[in-house]
Design a protein around this nucleic acid. Structure first.
Length: 544
RNA sequence: GCGCCCGUAGCUCAAUCGGAUAGAGCAUUGGACUACGAAUCCAAAGGUUGGAGGUUCGAGUCCUCCCGGGCGCGCCA
């Protein structure tokens, strides 16, 4: 990573806390990397930026092993032209680190939890959950690769009012199936899957309807929960998502965590009673208003569970950082949860909430509308079956998550240049094909290590070197900013550079030394494509 | 009414804690396979970054106001 080296060199001559940047300039004429260090320093020292830039450039240009030229330009930017020898050494670096190339120590083993999807087990996952799954899972992979100790978790709301309604929904459908005329309530779950569950339950428990209502509903509830959760797990597995922990809300109560958390808040003086209910003084910590934690009927609210859950994450389970991935419709919930952390004297910055915006499904140029209650929604399963796992995951990862996403079904299905996932995968498959040819030609792979990299000297070679060199930085940036889509865009760039290279140069030629060097480059590119696709949870096919 | 998110090329989107002349893909037009996979490549054209002020060496990015769209504002989850 040349950026790191430039930064290190600069820091030898600059105050440690100076917030300067080193980044590739827009114009190639301005070198490979540029820094605004002199401009920032000028503001602090009240000295002319050009003058400071000249001084710095003079010192840095001594590193002839790294730079072929260091110049001052514009208002005081310092432009670095990296020595060809450095670039060429990147291939060797990639090959020697292999699948660990890009792995970093950024996290230094800090414990981070990524909690995502956590959809109520009251129905199948829909495409919105799918987006959350893709983002959460990929983020977890990236954080892990960047040196964090990561736990992936799904919080299961397996108690409370929604569960009761679910049980009643199934029970009512079961009665309907046995010929009874039912006026199905508006606020119950109306999807067809409820009827399927009712049918299955009746087959298992033929005596269900002879039982007292309360008992029958409880049976229906537990049955539906188990069945739906199994389906959710299977959907996620097929989507390439596996969890370390399935966390039960019910368990929180059984272990007394909720009462303990409320007691802690109470002892700290942050709770009060009003109109028979118990309130948390959220407004004292930046929230709009105070929030109920225990209703006047004695039932704790969902919020109470969440207080206990997050308290446990930080105080008992020892996570340094917690990332919650939520649907954007829950955004109003963030301030109250952060308020709880403040009240518990936990730095609220240690909780990062990613709000995933809506997915609009476009089919035949038309928007498909959705409503969970009415049962009209496209499920993740249906979308996967229709367009394929790789295309779905990749598409979900082509946007920053706080922007709504338009998912064009027909486009995602098309196996052509319009579909970016195939563009990247094709690059990988093409490279695989090159190596199949290489084997046929009988070239020895082991000899790549001592290839003469100075033979790689075209503009297309350097374009690839720079991208390979930047990969570890992209991983770190994605981890730091919690923005997996940066990696997606990097892979598209790398694939573009490779396809361009492929049409201009041959990997296999009469010139054996040149072939050897180019194959080494090809192998490095293939490695980084594969590592990157793995991080996205998208396959890197040998053939397509 | 209050709060959060979004507004960038015809369409879908990028743009690194504020950096130099705002970039891709698609669509449009024109071109490239007698050698490793044409699911590819090259070129042209496409912009008052929703609008108006402000902050400064420098603003798509930060601040204020306005316009438009989405989502919240419950002793639901």
């Amino acid at each position: 990573m040349i950026v790191k080296k430039i930064r290190e060199e600069l820091l030898k001559h600059l105050p440690e806390d100076l917030p300067f940047k080193v980044e590739p300039p827009r114009e190639e004429a301005f070198g490979d990397y540029a820094t605004n260090a002199a401009l920032v320093l000028a503001g602090r020292l009240k000295r002319p930026p050009r003058e400071l830039a000249d001084e710095l450039a003079g010192k840095l240009s001594a590193r002839a092993d790294l730079f072929s030229k260091v110049e001052v330009a514009g208002p005081g930017f310092i432009n670095f032209f990296v020595a060809p020898g450095y670039w060429q050494s990147v291939v060797k670096e990639v090959l020697s680190r292999g699948e660990d190339y890009g792995r970093s120590e950024l996290g230094r083993g800090r414990k981070v939890q990524v909690e995502f999807v956590s959809a109520n087990p009251t129905g199948p996952l829909h495409i919105g959950h799918g987006r959350g799954a893709a983002v959460g899972d990929t983020l977890a992979r990236i954080l892990s690769f960047a040196g964090y100790e990561v736990v992936k978790e799904y919080y299961v709301n397996d108690r409370g009012r929604q569960m009761e309604i679910l049980g009643r929904s199934v029970w009512l459908r079961a009665r309907e199936l046995s010929g009874e005329k039912i006026d199905f309530p508006e606020d119950h779950y109306r999807g067809d899957y409820i009827k399927d569950l009712a049918r299955k339950l009746l087959a298992e428990r033929p005596n269900l309807l002879t039982l007292p209502e309360e008992e029958a509903v409880a049976i229906a509830r537990d049955f539906a929960l188990r069945e739906i959760l199994e389906e959710i797990k299977q959907d996620l597995i097929d989507f390439g998502v596996s969890y370390d922990v399935w966390y039960s809300e019910r368990g929180l109560y059984e272990r007394g965590e909720v009462e303990e958390a409320l007691r802690a808040l109470s002892e700290a003086g942050h709770l009060y009673e009003k109109e028979g209910a118990l309130w948390f003084r959220a407004s004292a910590f930046g929230d709009e208003k105070d929030r109920v934690v225990r209703r006047s009927n004695g039932e704790p609210t969902y919020f109470a569970s969440d207080i206990a859950y997050h308290r446990e994450k930080f105080l008992k389970r020892g996570f340094d950082l917690v990332v919650d991935v939520w649907g954007a419709d829950h955004h109003g919930y963030v301030p109250r949860l952060k308020a709880v952390l403040s009240a518990l004297e936990i730095d609220p910055e240690r909780l990062q909430v990613l709000l995933i915006q809506m997915v609009n499904l476009i089919e035949g140029g038309k928007l498909k509308s959705m409503s969970t209650r009415a049962g009209e929604f496209v499920t993740l399963r249906e979308l996967m079956d229709e367009v394929g796992r790789d295309a779905v995951r990749f598409t979900f990862l082509t946007r920053k998550c706080d922007a709504p996403l338009e998912f064009d079904v027909e486009l995602a299905k098309r196996q052509s240049q319009e579909n970016p996932v195939y563009y990247v995968q094709y690059a990988h498959a093409r490279l695989s094909s090159v190596f199949r040819k290489t084997e046929e030609a009988g070239l020895k792979l082991e000899t790549f290590g001592d290839a003469d990299y100075t033979r790689l000297d075209t503009p297309e070679d350097f374009k690839l070197f720079k991208l390979l060199d930047a990969f570890p930085q992209v991983v770190e940036d994605s981890a730091r900013s919690l923005e997996p889509h940066r990696l997606t865009y990097f892979l598209l760039d790398l694939a573009t550079a490779f396809h361009d290279y492929y049409t201009k140069h041959r990997f296999l030629s009469e010139d054996e030394e040149l072939s050897r060097a180019r194959l080494a480059l090809a192998r490095a590119v293939k490695q980084v494509l594969k590592t990157g696709l793995n991080l996205l949870g998208v396959s890197a096919p040998e053939r397509m």
